[in-house]
Nucleic acid binder design. Structure first.
Lengths: 245, 245
DNA sequence: GTCAATGTGTTGTCATGACATCTGCCCTCT
DNA sequence: AGAGGGCAGATGTCATGACAACACATTGAC
């Protein structure tokens, strides 16, 4: 077995292990590597690609984390059987919709600086009594209401503008502002729609909603955003992939 | 800064990087390392612990993946601000409840070998027309109904017994049977309870339910279990931690 | 006084080498 | 024919060394 054709470009700024991981992921997605197929051994791959074994291992580990392949000591590496789905990465709803080929639009209901509610201060790790930016948006997909999103951000962040919020997702704006988001803690639940929520989302009162609260931190470990989102359960669900290390 | 006292035991079968990661995680949980605190640099740590830098890096990467700390190139490593929550790992509901100090109990509603529904065959990657083990359970926590769980497993797996299912979680039984589960794809959503579901869960018809379908694969990349679970949204929610890289 | 260049410390990437441990298979002995 | 040992091959772990990229503080020139 020689596996798919993979070539690395040493002059590229993209790390070698990442190039390898991406090409393997693409080969799996394409079907060049079918579910159950064995990959070459790490030593064979290292030899064939002209890379060291740690680099190859790093690439493969990346794919294991994404739930694409499985390794067994003493045996080898195989592609996971069955169709592969994309895991929820650290993306915003806006980006997810664009990737799925839909056309998101956003209506900004509120954008103001307000006194920070105690629960938000606790979530963001801020001292009580301060101020935060408060944001309420209604997100549409292909013209249909999909989600009602409420967010709080520290005031020392770059100020948000209506125009930017209507064109892009919140995370894209923050990233463009030099704020690199590195992780988030999320809680996912469900509850019934209130009358006001139902009216805005085009559901009936009491309709099931998917709820998610998320607190995201940046590369300094500082909490950057706290959000409470509700989604129409009839039109949206979340995907998560878990892999053991 | 010298950081918390950490010592490794080279005679232990536990990998060194794992020992280091666990002790740092414990120090963070204890509060010895406060949110925002800087860790020693990788070189300092390697020197202090008598380990190589790759080993220290592996330990730290583990903590980054768990969302406990953040690294910044050229700057250093910091503990994530704010309280830390445990991520949903690859555990069953049963184990989660035990860890939370509650007393789960299980009532097995159905345990039989049935013709495999097409949707399940697709999820498990089985040829259509075969047979599968089918399982329906009602899970209680401290005597209160919490979740209705329906699972399908290939027939070539070890046969399940009523007694085992009432005492332990499904994953614990599979692991004890030598089946190592390595990862899972999950989809999380919400919907309204049917009359029958509401009656079993002690909710009203139309009450919001949190739904999760999960397909788990073992160390050979074979799908081992497909489950469709519904939870009382009023009593249960899921936690997920996402970290980049 | 301001701004650019430099220096230092950190994490990111990659290579090489070695040994440990596990699995599955073949082979041999009983 | 069956059980057991040994062997080959795979991943898991760990060490050492080196350079690159980046952030931040300091120094120097203008």
């Amino acid at each position: 077995m020689t596996g798919p054709e993979i070539a690395v470009d040493r002059s590229s700024p993209v790390p070698l292990y990442f190039q390898v991981a991406e090409q393997f992921a693409a080969a799996i997605q394409r079907g060049d590597l079918a579910p159950g197929d064995r990959l070459d051994s790490e030593l064979q791959l290292a030899d064939r690609l002209g890379l060291s074994r740690p680099t190859v291992r790093q690439a493969i580990q990346h794919l294991v984390d994404k739930g694409l392949i499985v390794r067994r000591r003493g045996v080898g590496t195989q592609v996971v059987r069955g169709e592969v789905r994309r895991a929820v990465e650290l993306t915003s709803l806006h980006d997810d919709l664009v990737r799925a080929g839909q056309r998101p639009s956003t209506s900004v209901l509120e954008l103001a600086t307000v006194a920070c509610p105690p629960a938000v201060a606790a979530a963001l790790g801020l001292p009580p009594g301060g101020e935060v930016q408060h944001l309420r948006r209604l997100r549409f997909s292909d013209g249909e209401p999909l989600a009602l999103m409420e967010n709080w951000l520290p005031v020392d962040l770059p100020r948000l503008t209506m125009a930017a919020l209507q064109a892009d997702g919140l995370y894209a704006i923050l990233r463009a502002g030099g704020r690199r988001i590195r992780g988030a803690h999320q809680r996912i639940g469900a509850r019934a729609a209130t009358a006001a929520e139902a009216q805005m989302l085009g559901e009936r009162r009491g309709a099931p909603l998917l709820t998610m609260t998320r607190t995201a931190y940046d590369d300094q470990g500082r909490y950057v955003e706290h959000g409470a989102h509700i989604y129409r359960a009839s039109r949206y669900s979340l995907e998560v992939t878990v892999a053991e290390r």
